[in-house]
């Protein structure tokens, strides 16, 4: 898996983002979008997509009939997203909004799912914690959280190889765009600590990508399991 640090080059030209990220992931990013949509989207469900970018996840959820709100801070990415046709029977509204502003737009207990793909790693630890806390309050009881992002492999050798392969990409991307990305760490634990239940962590792509799923329940407490995907 090529590192998603290259995404920064793509974000500097939003019109190239979709094609670029498709190539970077060797076509597998579409599978992630579909996987997220299959897990949480259905007709009459209301979904919030945090850091929607050019709308890959939002539109995949709309294709399954959901009412989707995609939020992002990047005006250029949102322009690209808004220009795309909405597939299926769902609806999509794209808003220029930070994760910390969710509470201004969405009342408590109004969302059926909160999703995020390749965006949480952009947030500072305190922003991540705040976003998780607010997401939980905006979900209806039984509502789902699903976050997908780049992650460093767990095994030592694989981890070393991952960082070694990433280093030149980081340097080149930094020179080209003056920015970089960081893999997320401890996401499942943070989701559990926020009070989500039935938290599962699915690792894919040679342990370099993670999908963390949790459920909002009224009662306190959390359970967890980890499974290995493909």
């Amino acid at each position: 898996m090529s590192s998603f640090v290259w995404m920064k080059v793509l974000e500097s030209a939003p019109e190239r983002y979709d094609r670029g990220v498709h190539r970077l992931s060797r076509g597998r990013i579409d599978d992630v979008y579909r996987r997220i949509a299959e897990r949480v989207a259905a007709p009459a469900r209301t979904i919030l997509d945090i850091g929607c970018g050019t709308g890959g996840v939002s539109l995949a959820c709309a294709a399954r009939g959901a009412e989707v709100f995609g939020i992002d801070l990047d005006a250029g990415m949102l322009e690209v997203a808004r220009a795309k046709p909405v597939p299926g029977d769902g609806t999509v509204t794209f808003l220029q909004l930070a994760a910390a502003e969710i509470e201004d737009r969405f009342p408590e207990r109004t969302l059926d799912a909160v999703v995020s793909c390749l965006a949480f790693s952009e947030l500072s630890p305190e922003q991540q914690a705040y976003a998780l806390k607010i997401a939980r309050t905006r979900l209806r009881p039984g509502g789902e959280l699903l976050i997908a992002d780049e992650v460093a492999p767990r095994s030592g050798a694989r981890r070393a190889w991952y960082h070694l392969r990433r280093a030149p990409l980081i340097a080149l991307t930094y020179v080209l765009t003056q920015t970089t990305t960081r893999p997320v760490a401890g996401l499942a634990d943070a989701v559990r600590a926020t009070g989500f239940r039935e938290v599962t962590e699915t690792r894919i792509w040679e342990d370099t990508f993670v999908l963390v799923h949790g459920v909002r329940a009224e009662a306190a407490g959390a359970s967890a399991s980890t499974e290995e995907g493909s």
């Binding site: 801070l73 502003e101 500072s124 922003q127």
Partner: peptide, 29 residues
């Protein structure tokens, strides 16, 4: 606030330091 490591004037001009970031800083801090 998160200005993406850029100085205030350039970040504000480039859209990397906006009221969204200030609101985020106030709330998360």
């Amino acid at each position: 606030a998160d200005s993406r490591g850029i100085n205030v004037w350039c970040a504000a001009g480039g859209g990397h330091l906006t009221h969204h970031d200030v609101i985020s800083a106030i709330r998360t801090s």
